[in-house]
């Protein structure tokens, strides 16, 4: 099954991370690739660089943000190929941000019918 591991954290909270975050991400990715679990993964620029797009009544409205500085925001993702949820949870727990943020694990919707 394919699982999306969505990486959430409060902006700035990575400052409390013990160790080299970037190096640990590199190591995690390598490990996931070597295990054949890694399908894809990217990091996102901060929310301050985000734009929100909504189409209402046929017209497109674009706003700055979303700004929710005290809330956890999406910072990146991994797409993982795992046998079952337990394996996906095991990998999600290894993502460095799991130590100070939240990894949301969601199965991909299968559209085969």
């Amino acid at each position: 099954m394919q699982y999306m591991a969505l990486i959430y954290s409060t902006p700035g909270s990575e400052a409390g991370y013990e160790g080299d975050l970037l190096a640990d991400y590199g190591q995690f990715t390598q490990e996931a690739v070597a295990a054949g679990v890694f399908k894809a993964g990217e990091a996102l620029m901060p929310v301050s660089d985000a734009s929100s797009v909504r189409v209402r009544g046929g017209s497109t409205a674009v706003t700055d943000g979303p700004f929710a500085e005290t809330k956890e925001v999406l910072g990146g993702y991994y797409l993982l190929n795992c046998a079952d949820l337990d394996e996906a949870i095991k990998w999600a727990a290894k993502i460095p941000t799991a130590k100070y943020g939240t990894i949301e694990v969601r199965p991909l919707m299968v559209l085969d019918r």
Partner: peptide, 14 residues
């Protein structure tokens, strides 16, 4: 069914 919750007895540190 959808999330692939396994049908097995946990092992090891779990």
């Amino acid at each position: 069914r959808h999330a692939g919750i396994p049908y097995k007895v946990p092992e090891g540190p779990d």
